[in-house]
């Protein structure tokens, strides 16, 4: 079926079968590869994007349910929280292999957008669904706290 998707501020006409995960339309059709495939079953968070500002797992979001929503991927981030998160990530050299980090950042931006001053417990709770096989968690936690400070400044 033909759909029109609002993604990163632009409208895209795409052809996809109902039930196709948003992830594969973003990666294979629109060729935006910053959003990653890690598990396909909403267990790792690598595929996290924003739907109307809320983080969702795109591997478990059907394309027909994304129609009409504002979809934001890592390539389209530009909010104040996003800038702070990305700057903090670079400042603290969070990444290792980096494959999970788009998803980590999308979740972190979601967290700081709704809760600009999270506690460590709130961070651990919110970020629980984003796996990092390289175990960069220490730095993710510190970078979120750092971004929170940057947003305040």
């Amino acid at each position: 079926m033909a759909l029109s998707l609002k993604l990163n501020g632009q409208t895209h006409e795409v052809e996809a079968e109902p039930g196709t995960p948003l992830l594969w339309v973003i990666r294979d059709e629109l060729k935006l590869t910053g959003t990653k495939f890690g598990c396909g079953v909403a267990a790792c968070g690598a595929c996290t994007v924003h739907l109307d500002g809320e983080p969702v797992r795109s591997c478990q979001t059907y394309i027909e349910d994304a129609e009409g929503a504002e979809i934001t991927t890592i390539e389209g981030l530009n909010s104040k929280a996003a800038q702070a998160v990305q700057a903090a990530w670079v400042e603290l050299d969070v990444v290792q292999c980096g494959y999970c980090q788009s998803g980590q950042i999308m979740s972190a931006v979601g967290l700081l957008s709704e809760n600009p001053k999270p506690t460590v417990e709130e961070i651990d709770d919110y970020m629980n669904g984003n796996a990092c096989r390289c175990a960069t968690y220490q730095r993710i936690r510190s970078a979120i706290l750092r971004a929170s400070d940057m947003m305040e400044a």
Partner: peptide, 15 residues
């Protein structure tokens, strides 16, 4: 490699 791995531009074999 921090920047490209933070803004989605790093290209992995899967990409």
């Amino acid at each position: 490699d921090s920047l490209p791995k933070t803004n989605g531009t790093a290209k992995y074999a899967m990409d």
